[in-house]
Design a protein around this nucleic acid. Structure first.
Lengths: 335, 335
DNA sequence: ATGTTCTCTGAAACCGGTTTCTTTGCCCCG
DNA sequence: CGGGGCAAAGAAACCGGTTTCAGAGAACAT
């Protein structure tokens, strides 16, 4: 532990009888230094418990060793998993992330990006969000930027996301393969691209199977558990027939499952249920939830380490991560 | 959006035909400046899209407007809720948190604290953790520090935590009041103070009610859902009789509930279950989980805003937040 | 009219590093 | 033995702000 009034590079220099420059050189291994001076400096550093001042370093060196991470909803399982991935992907890299919460409000996001720039972050990781592409295009020219969980045309190599229409398609197909045709869909936030794409996948699967699309089966939710219960309540009170539910995410599925339970409907015997995300709890609810597993942690990790490489000008590759059906026990074959 | 090669204070000065000093003065409102110069500067700033360089500011001003937050397990509902609170508590304060993940490893924690100091954070928020008090005492003299979710003697005003023995006591009592006497306890990580204290509360409640303590009912878990299922499996395979389970946290409770289900035991008809934390999912599982609600978000918020005040030398008060029994449907009266 | 105080402002030092520029001293080669 | 080349290290400039210090006027008191 160090105190305020830390040792500075000058103190080390004095102690080791060399100049600041030399200390800086051994610190960064930037050019050759005689062995004896090097050890003298190293010893002095050890002795004084020297910890370089990152702030000064940032100012002088032009890099802050700080990355801005704009996320959308800290506290929700999905974004938290992504953030966790980012932190792990950054561990040991020397970079520290600064998280800010955009809350899907474009004006907030823009403002936060500005303050991140004011902090002279060396790179930007944008998770989801609503910032218009043109703005991002500008941004990208100035600052290494990687966008996560959002599809952006022309950003192929700086954008990592998942195929949501395909995922929606597969989830729906799974249900169809089990004999279901009356599949209720609880949508996520209306304008949310993920929600829209999953819906597309749903519609596509239905039409490919020759099942007629029925708007009565669609409920507009908001990714919350509460919207899951409302959806089921609405479905039932409206007398809509359904044998399966495809929920916008696992939280919604939990809500739906509870509402079903309240109405005396069993999962999966009476109604099958599939979620989206595969959050940690989903494997342990009763019955364990069949869901589309999103590799959120992996995505965060991949994005973070890619960003570091992008900053360093090293080549990198963004893996294309699959959304995979995680079969558990909330789906049953329709009798 | 700004570009690299941002406008600097000097650019503004040139533009407004004043000196750097004056610009700095209007920026900080630090001393009186003539109205005309002030507007000239303001206009120049607007025109050039000036965003002060926080890094330079930090170096010169000695404050980095950055707070170090040492948490223990990013990705777990409890710590995430605390972090969320911290972020909200800091919103608009001008301070940005830097989160690091100590993972309950003391050596890691110490190292991370060092790097935070290297970043010249203006204050430290330690959430849980294992760093020995003596080290913290030293730390506190150098840096405004607040400890969250950990009880520390002599830290009364810089330490916000919850009464875990009382919470354990109340949870157990709730079960006892419902007629239970064979109450299994699934403990958290062995050395974890929270786990120890909750256990104390459990033991106290039992002894006060004249119920004999039975070590067979205790299972050593680790706060994971998996440990919940292992606990129940172990209990049942060992033929231990029990009518209620008190789980270390909600995740553990979910695991336990699943295992119970696998064994054909109903909750709450056959076995009552109480959890701890009240994470978001708990209200929506079936049956909704009775649990001890920890005000994690509130704690994070309170700690964050207290830290800011502490840094500014303003008076503040750390609220004492209660852990409250959240009655739902996983507990039934023993017939 | 002169001295004093106060307000406003610019110059310059400073924060703690990095980096460029120079200088010094050594080695090698013709 | 003298000159070219190179490695090592110090001096100084710089990053973009804040803050101290000092000076210029203006207002005020005597």
């Amino acid at each position: 532990m160090q105190q305020r009034g830390e040792a500075t590079i000058q103190d080390i220099a004095d102690h080791a009888c060399v100049s600041k420059s030399t200390v800086s050189r051994v610190l960064n291994n930037s050019s050759s230094v005689n062995e004896d001076k090097r050890t003298a400096v190293t010893e002095a550093m050890k002795k004084l418990g020297f910890e370089p001042n990152v702030v000064a370093r940032s100012l002088a060196g032009g890099r802050s060793m700080t990355l801005g991470v704009l996320t959308q909803n800290i506290g929700s399982p999905y974004y938290d998993a992504l953030s966790q991935g980012v932190i792990h992907g950054l561990a040991g890299s020397g970079y520290s992330p600064i998280f800010v919460d955009g809350q899907w409000k474009q004006s907030t996001e823009t403002e936060l990006i500005r303050t991140l720039i004011g902090r002279r972050v060396d790179g930007l990781l944008l998770i989801g969000g609503d910032v218009p592409v043109e703005q991002l295009n500008e941004l990208r020219d100035r600052l290494p930027t990687i966008v996560v969980a959002r599809e952006l045309v022309g950003w192929d190599n700086q954008c990592i996301h998942v195929d949501n229409v395909r995922a929606g398609y597969e989830a729906t197909n799974h249900l169809v393969n089990f004999g279901h045709s009356r599949i209720a869909l609880i949508r996520g936030i209306k304008q949310h691209p993920d929600a829209i794409q999953r819906f597309e996948g749903y519609a596509k699967a239905l039409s490919e199977s020759g099942i007629e699309f029925d708007p009565d089966l669609i409920f507009q939710g908001d990714f919350s558990a509460q919207s899951g219960v409302m959806a089921v309540n609405s479905l039932i009170s409206r007398g809509v027939q359904f044998t399966a539910v495809f929920a916008a995410n696992d939280m919604v599925a939990f809500g739906a499952r509870l509402a079903l339970h309240r109405h005396g409907l069993r999962v999966p015997e009476d109604v099958s249920l599939v979620g989206f995300d595969d959050q940690a709890e989903s494997a342990f609810v009763t019955p364990p939830l069949t869901t589309m597993r999103q590799p959120a942690v992996e995505m965060g990790e991949a994005a973070a380490s890619a960003l570091v490489k992008l900053i360093h000008g090293e080549p990198y590759e963004l893996p294309s991560l699959p959304v995979e059906l995680q079969r558990r026990e909330s789906v049953a074959r329709l009798r």
